[in-house]
């Protein structure tokens, strides 16, 4: 889902940067207010954690592999605003230092993965797990559903961005200037692979990590409440 440079036109890049600037500002203000001084390195370590999660190749039936984004997991562990910063930092470093995702598309990538996926995943998880104890199996189900749905919502957002390009940027002769596929094709292509493959990867990993932490170290699942306190 990392959009490279050249796929999106200036209008989409500009709008997504314009949307993300206030989000980053609000996130940094909220995190600065709620995060205790002692927890500042936690944010950097969480960003590194989020970065590394995207590097894990997870086996998928059929012999191939896929990778999780880990944005929902970060939101469950850190809360949505801190997760928004952590995932954004991971995406910016990936774009600047490793060429994974474009520099002009940083706004779009952060909008999809650090904003849409993080907040959608967090609130779906909260809605399903509301009122349950920290070790309740409902939390595992909530993490699974949140991981699956949030990644697909983010994929839908990315596909809408792709699909808008031929509408927004075309020469007089009908030649596409950026991503050449229309909305219908882009949505079908992106959603089919995410609904069938990557959504499950994100769901399984999010749920399994929550399950493992419930058993081994449930305090870590309460950490985002601790950050707020």
């Amino acid at each position: 889902m990392h959009i490279p440079d050249g796929y999106l036109g200036p209008a989409t890049c500009g709008v997504t940067y314009a949307v993300m600037f206030p989000v980053w500002l609000i996130a940094s203000k909220i995190v600065k207010k709620t995060l205790k001084t002692k927890q500042v390195p936690l944010l950097a370590i969480s960003a590194a954690f989020s970065f590394v999660i995207m590097m894990f190749n997870i086996p998928i039936p059929g012999g191939t592999t896929g990778h999780a984004v880990g944005a929902v997991l970060a939101a469950i562990l850190l809360g949505p605003w801190a997760a928004c910063i952590a995932v954004s930092v991971a995406l910016i470093i990936q774009a600047l230092l490793f060429g994974d995702g474009g520099i002009t598309a940083i706004g779009a990538n952060c909008f999809n993965m650090a904003f849409v996926e993080v907040f959608a995943g967090y609130y779906i998880y909260r809605a399903i797990s509301a009122g349950s104890t920290i070790v309740s199996s409902r939390r595992i189900v909530a993490a699974f559903i949140a991981g699956y749905l949030a990644l697909n919502i983010a994929a839908l957002s990315a596909s809408i961005m792709f699909g808008l390009q031929p509408v927004l940027h075309k020469t007089a002769s009908g030649q596409a200037l950026y991503c050449p596929y229309g909305l219908k094709t882009a949505v079908i292509a992106m959603l089919s692979e995410h609904l069938l493959v990557f959504g499950w990867v994100e769901a399984i990993i999010t749920a399994l990590v929550v399950k493992y932490l419930q058993k081994q170290d449930p305090v870590l699942l309460k950490m985002q409440e601790e950050v707020k306190a």
Binding site: W24, S28, K32, A44, A47, A48, F51, S88, V89, I92
Partner: peptide, 10 residues
């Protein structure tokens, strides 16, 4: 906060 986080994260 972003610059510091990025440096440490890296």
């Amino acid at each position: 906060i972003f610059v510091m986080t990025m440096g440490m994260c890296y």
